[in-house]
Amino acid sequence: MTGTSLADGGVQRAIARRRFLDLAFQALALLILILALGSLIALITDVWRDGFSRLSWDFLTGFPSRRAANAGIWHALSGSMLVILVTGTLAVPIGVASAIYLEEYSRRNLMARIIEINITNLAAVPSIIYGLLGLGLFVRAMGMGRSVLAGASTLALLVLPVIILSTREALRAVPPSIREGSYALGATKWQTVWYQVLPIALPGILTGMILALSRAIGETAPLISIGALTFVAFAPDGLWSPFTVLPIQIFNWVSRPQVEFQANAAAGILVLLALLLTMNAAAIWLRDHYQKKLS
C-alpha cells in the first residue's frame, strides 16, 4: 500500500489515525449500551435474589402483618387492580373522545392549538403535582376522601395526555381515502368516525391504552400525596373504600430497616414487574395480531 500515487505518508497516517478514532468511538458507544443493559440485568437479578424465596401462594393472598414472614400483598394487589380498572373506565373514553375531537373535528384554529400545547405540557408535569391536584380537588374540595375513586380520578388525569397522544397517533394512521369513501356514500362525520375510522384505529388505541395504564399501575408518588394509606390491611370493597396499591406497599416495606421486610419489598416488586410484563405482552400481541389481519 505504501508509496501509491494516491496519498503520501502524511495523509496515510492521518487516515489511519481517523480510522482508529472511529473504532474507539464505536467501542465506547457499545460499552455504554452494554452498561445500560447491564444495569437492567443487575436490577432484575438483585430483586430476584432478594425476593424470589418469599414468593408463594400465601404471599399473594395474604394480608399485612407485623411479622414479615407472615405478610402478604393481597390487599395491595387487589387495590392496584381496582384502581386501574376505575382509572381506565374514566380516562379511556374521555381521552379517546378528546383525540377524536382534535384529529377529526377541530378546525386547526387557535383553540385547537392551545389544547394541543396544553396536552403536550401536561404530559411532562411531574406526577406528584397531579397528586397535589388530587389532594386539593378530589379528596378535599369534592369530598371524596382518601378513596379508590379519588385515587383513580387522580391517576386518570395523569394518564389522560398519554392516551390522547397515542390515540391521535392511531387515528392519523388511518388512510384519508377511507374517510373520503365513507363521505362519498353520504355518511355523516360521526358515522364515518364510528363505523370506519375507529375500528381501523382500534388496535393502536388499545395498545396506547394498555401502555398508559401500565404507567399508572407503577405510579406511587401521586397516590401517596393524596394520602392512600400505607397501613390499610384489607382489600378495597368499593369506590369509596380506603385502599393501598402495590407500589405503596413496596415503598412501605423498603423503608423498614429489617432485611425481612426488604425481602417482602423485593417479592412485591417481582409481582409488580410480572403484572407489567403481562400488560406489555398483551399490547405487543394486540399490535402484531391486528397488523397481520389488516395487511
Partner: peptide, 21 residues
C-alpha cells in the same frame, strides 16, 4: 426494546435498586 423496558420500570423499583444495590 431494552431501552423501552428501562423507561417503563416503575420508579419505586429504581428506588429499591438505589438504596439496596
Amino acid at each position: 426494546p431494552i431501552l423501552e423496558i428501562l423507561a417503563g420500570v416503575p420508579t419505586v423499583v429504581y428506588g429499591y435498586f438505589a438504596l439496596l444495590f
